[in-house]
């Protein structure tokens, strides 16, 4: 099947139109279930150890509402832009889809820059990885989320570039769909991070 005719005739939900696409979709949700458990354990560890500062800086000495708010809004908007990308995919609009994925990636990079600056600031305030049980569990939880953002940025960038060559077909559609699910999941985790780690850290002095 050539690319040109396929663009016109693929079904309304190209991501689950083939058995392979359906399997990717189901399999990816299974993976997200596993990721939920992974982050559950990291959250549990952090919650148990968050007051064990070992004489080092505590949460309310470090965190600022404005930085966290900026990071939260950036990630939330990027979640919406990846929804727009999937809508464009279902409309078979390759260029539009690539545009929205590009915006998503740029917002993801902005988030990472913000997080790296923040971590640098904390290091400057003598909160090293091994300073205290609080610092280790904090860096592990928020750092694991940051790694997911980095991976998402790389993943979405590569499939967006691939779209130039392969367009939107029943083969490529599951990739775009699943990548956007991953990006939403990153935002789901961040909602709990800003609430449990940052807001409760600031409120709980």
């Amino acid at each position: 099947m050539s690319k040109a005719e396929n663009v016109e005739t693929i079904p309304a939900h190209p991501e689950t139109a083939t058995l392979e696409g359906k399997n990717k979709f189901i399999g990816f949700w299974l993976f997200l279930g596993g990721e939920t458990v992974l982050f559950g354990t990291l959250f549990a560890t952090f919650l148990a150890l968050r007051n064990k500062t070992n004489g080092g800086p505590a949460a309310h000495d470090l965190f600022s509402l404005s930085t966290v708010f900026a990071a939260t809004v950036i990630l939330l908007v990027s979640s919406l832009t990846s929804v727009f990308a999937v809508m464009a995919m279902r409309d078979r609009a390759v260029g539009k889809m690539q545009f929205w994925f590009l915006i998503t990636v740029l917002l993801g990079i902005a988030f990472l820059v913000l997080e790296i600056t923040e971590f640098k600031e904390y290091l400057h305030e003598h909160l090293g990885y091994s300073t205290s049980a609080f610092s280790s569990s904090f860096y592990t939880l928020v750092g694991t989320h940051g790694c997911h953002v980095l991976f998402g940025v790389l993943w979405i960038s590569t499939i967006t570039i691939q779209a130039f060559k392969k367009g939107i077909t029943t083969v490529t559609a599951p990739k775009y769909y699943v990548a956007s699910l991953y990006w939403h999941f990153i935002d789901v985790v961040w909602v709990f991070i800003f609430t449990v780690v940052y807001l409760l850290g600031i409120a709980g002095r």
């Binding site: 979709f25 997200l32 279930g33 939920t36 559950g40 549990a44 939403h184």
Partner: peptide, 30 residues
């Protein structure tokens, strides 16, 4: 955003709620 409300999302819901359940128990314990 992740379309869990749409049809044919029974298995995804099962997976994510199973994960959320285990995560909840773990957090509760800790």
């Amino acid at each position: 955003f992740m379309h869990l409300k749409d049809k044919n999302h029974g298995m995804p819901a099962l997976f994510i709620y199973s994960g959320a359940f285990v995560a909840f128990i773990t957090v509760l314990a800790f």
